[in-house]
Design a protein around this nucleic acid. Structure first.
Lengths: 332, 332
DNA sequence: ACTAGACTTTGGAGCGCTTCAACGCGCGTC
DNA sequence: GACGCGCGTTGAAGCGCTCCAAAGTCTAGT
């Protein structure tokens, strides 16, 4: 910066002003400085800047699973909203590894980012408490925080389950099954509550079976599908809710394509995420849509609110409502 | 830091040593300092650190399309490799927006990251030249750089096209079509060369038609699929190569599921990426696999090489070979 | 008892920037 | 001609850390 100042025949203070408060500098001087900057290829040092200001204009976003299109949607929404308020969005993928998640939280903490958006897969209270205690703001996405500990953007996951089950019931299915895994993951728990609520509401004519899968991915779904395919025909559910789309698609594949048990004729299937792949599968998947983009936008809004309002900030929870997307796997 | 030093009854220099050179500090002192750090909730300021050292231990990765599983694989591979050498990987998604891409390159440049991994969708020579001229190292992924301007990790995209076409020819298809868009995108150009090479090699018995799609996504693929479905039966190709999996899947959907033109019986289809969704589609997609993870790992290796070797560094290009994954849409 | 040498600890310089009080400088006013 | 005023500009303080020369402490050898 001194070099630029020398080259332009001004002081470093003036160079700084050209960069940060152009109005304070006469046009002629500013032009001279800008010319020197580009001639010398000067790049200001962000570290020094944020050392002085004590902050940055970056927001860190920590995602548990960048493979999942819901998380990507959230990132998209957050990016748009962040840019609109002059912040950059930096992404970090933890691949569901809590050690990595803690590392990234600490990294963002040490980098003095404006704030952190966290979309975890497990309870992360410890990490949140840690960086919040340093004054770093956190907004939690798709995972309910301990009450009063931070802002959050949630989907009404109970309603997700309810909508899924309700659609099957409304279309005449009476023997439902809910395929679930990872019941310690709070959105999963909520979805189950909704499924159960819908079934109870329907009265004794509708039954619910809960099928425990080992995990939430395709391979686990294939196992569940194979097990189902081996059942006696009248032991088969006629409506199936899978807690993730991936599970749903894998089950459909096994039933429909491998075992010849037609979907939706014999079994209707509903997923609970409406992932990117939902519409493109063997039998396009009816699924309850999670509004990822909006979630990301809301998260940035909450974060900037919190940063702006300082001490008198009150934590808020935004709960967005899901929407059923009807496709072939469980038609109207 | 001064507070910690006071609390532990030592100087700031010692606190710094506890954090950075623990071996230099006696165990008792170190313990006292650490206790003070956690009691006071001290978080070291990364900005000040990197101001002193002139560098960080973060690598920035700029991705053109985080929706595409190839890019996600690259991010995964890079993350693993980066962590193995003590670097954090920061992700940025440009969503194919060159303005955003330039912004992120500049952001990483100003942040003095160790280096930048760039996986673009268009020629990015200008941006690369800009930040390289400031001494920032860049490794280009899946896009050939101007010769000698930087390191890069590529896939032999010509061979991608070749493998795809060759597989169709080897399994008896004689009337091939290559569906392509975005021909200014260099990997796309390369793939076409490979397709043409395979067809020429096969001699006069095999013909190639090139079908221009408007874009690379599902909706564009649906249009192409509809157009194909309207053709007279003997005007239909019997082997189809789509430059992206998304295109391939959409075409299969239109042909097979909508128009009843069986895949692979009437038309065999091959994709060129082997995306995550390839195996889960209506007719599981035969595709040429791009080794994303390895690409990411190699990129980090090249970057760290370049950082370590300084002036005597010679740019290198790593070219990885693709592999055909045979599934139902174009069986053996 | 004295000292060389190894191990610890200290304190201050300096990283590159922003900010702000202070300082010109020209101009209109009294 | 002295004064006040606003605009541009300056120069230095200080952000929080790392690094290093120097000082301090301890042990063992003479």
């Amino acid at each position: 910066m001194q070099d630029v100042a020398d080259a332009a025949g001004v002081s470093v203070g003036t160079v700084s002003n050209v960069l940060n408060h152009p109005a304070k500098v006469s046009p002629a001087t500013a032009e001279r400085v800008r010319e020197a900057i580009s001639r010398l290829g000067f790049v200001r040092n962000d570290a020094a800047r944020s050392l002085v200001s004590g902050s940055t204009n970056s927001v860190g976003m920590v995602l548990a699973d960048i493979e999942n299109s819901l998380f990507i949607d959230m990132a998209h929404g957050a990016q748009d909203a962040a840019r609109a308020v002059g912040q950059n969005l930096l992404l970090a993928n933890t691949a569901c590894d809590m050690t990595l998640q803690d590392d990234y939280l600490d990294l963002f903490d040490e980098s003095r980012v404006t704030g952190v958006l966290l979309a975890p897969m497990e309870d992360s209270s410890a990490g949140i408490a840690r960086i919040r205690s340093h004054g770093r703001q956190v907004v939690l996405l798709n995972y309910a925080p301990r009450p009063g500990t931070c802002c959050s953007v949630l989907v009404n996951n109970e309603h997700v389950g309810y909508l899924a089950a309700r659609h099957l019931i409304d279309t005449g299915r009476t023997r439902l099954a809910y395929v679930v895994a990872h019941d310690d993951y709070q959105p999963v728990r909520d979805r189950r509550r909704g499924v159960r609520a819908a079934v109870e509401e329907a009265g004794p004519g509708v039954t619910l079976e809960e099928i425990d899968s080992v995990g939430l991915t395709s391979s686990h779904g294939h196992v569940v599908g194979q097990d189902l395919a081996r059942r006696a025909p009248d032991d088969l559910p006629d409506g199936l809710i899978a807690v993730t789309d991936e599970l749903a698609n894998a089950i459909i594949h096994q039933l429909h394509a491998v075992a010849g048990i037609r979907v939706p004729d014999r079994v209707a299937v509903v997923g609970c995420e409406n992932n990117r792949a939902a519409g493109a599968s063997v039998v396009p998947l009816t699924a309850v849509d999670m509004p990822g983009r909006t979630m990301g936008q809301e998260a940035i809004r909450l974060l900037m609110d919190e940063v702006a309002s300082g001490a008198q900030h009150r934590h808020a929870t935004v709960v967005l409502e899901p929407e059923l997307i009807v496709r072939a796997s469980a038609p109207r």
